[in-house]
């Protein structure tokens, strides 16, 4: 039996996410300087860096919460075109609701603490225009199930839940509309190590099942190492090094990256 193999081809797809030359200042502080990044369909891009290196600002810009002074942002999706930083408020809101999901470090930013967990997930669909109760209920249950949330606590408000559970609700909310892009801002910081491992596990499984493109920001190299395919190291608002995850962790080139990798206990 002969195995017919195709000759390897050069992949010529465009990246799903492309951020080009963005800069953002807060008064005299230049938070992000001329940063470019891209991520392909189904890829996990990790952004590492110390506190204040501009990684969270970059993520907020990807979620269109903040608009930089310069730079462009494109998503290669069927009905999305042009520089997304130039969209008006309405278009931005609709795009964020339907195409981008985000999980914040602080669940208070992403969740309505006193409404039920399933309601929090359903809100996402409501914003997108879904008006059928049965559909909402089912979609919320499915999303919470996918993020491994215990379904017997479906209607408990997040304020009564543990930190890990709150992150799962956030995650369910983010994936409820099957977004093309999932942004994670320090999703496991503040959780204890065992819960952290469980949440990372969920993320990894989701990524494998759904092939969602993810951008994950963390100062924890362990988290990045577990999830990311490609890593971008940021310092003082600039990218100092990018490369495949293994490359960065095994053979760091930039002195700051070397420091970072070696400083890991």
């Amino acid at each position: 039996m002969t195995l017919a193999l195709d000759a390897p081809r050069i992949v010529e797809t465009r990246p799903l996410l492309e951020v080009h030359g963005v800069s953002k200042s807060y008064k005299s502080i230049r938070a992000v300087r001329n940063v470019s990044a891209h991520a392909y369909q189904g890829e996990v891009l990790g952004i590492v860096g110390e506190s204040g290196s501009g990684k969270s600002t970059l993520l907020r810009m990807m979620n269109l919460e903040e608009i930089p002074e310069t730079g462009s942002y494109t998503l290669d999706l069927p009905d999305v075109s042009g520089n997304l930083f130039e969209l008006d408020r309405f278009a931005r809101r609709m795009l964020c609701a339907t195409k981008i999901g985000i999980v914040y470090q602080n669940p208070h930013l992403g969740l309505l603490m006193k409404h039920s967990s399933s309601g929090n997930v359903a809100e996402r669909l409501l914003v997108a225009g879904e008006r059928s109760f049965a559909t909402l209920r089912q979609a919320a249950t499915e999303a919470l199930d996918a993020s491994e949330f215990p379904l017997d606590r479906l209607d408990a408000p997040p304020i009564e839940l543990s930190g890990g559970m709150q992150q799962r609700v956030q995650l369910a909310k983010a994936i409820a509309l099957e977004p093309a892009l999932l942004l994670l801002d320090e999703p496991t910081t503040g959780l204890d190590v065992s819960v952290q491992a469980l949440v990372l596990d969920t993320l990894k499984r989701l990524q494998q099942d759904r092939q969602i493109t993810m951008v994950i920001v963390s100062h924890d190299l362990g988290v990045i190492r577990t999830l990311a395919d490609r890593v971008m190291v940021m310092r003082r608002g600039e990218v100092v090094e990018t490369g495949l995850a293994d490359q960065i962790f095994q053979d760091p080139q930039h002195p700051y990256t070397q420091q970072l990798v070696h400083a890991k206990l």
């Binding site: 809101r93 039920s116 109760f133």
Partner: peptide, 18 residues
């Protein structure tokens, strides 16, 4: 101003759930 009323249904959703 944006006619962004999606969340109003959240209230009704919660009531039906509860």
């Amino acid at each position: 101003a944006d006619a962004d009323y999606g969340r109003m249904w959240l209230q009704l959703y919660e009531q039906i759930v509860r």
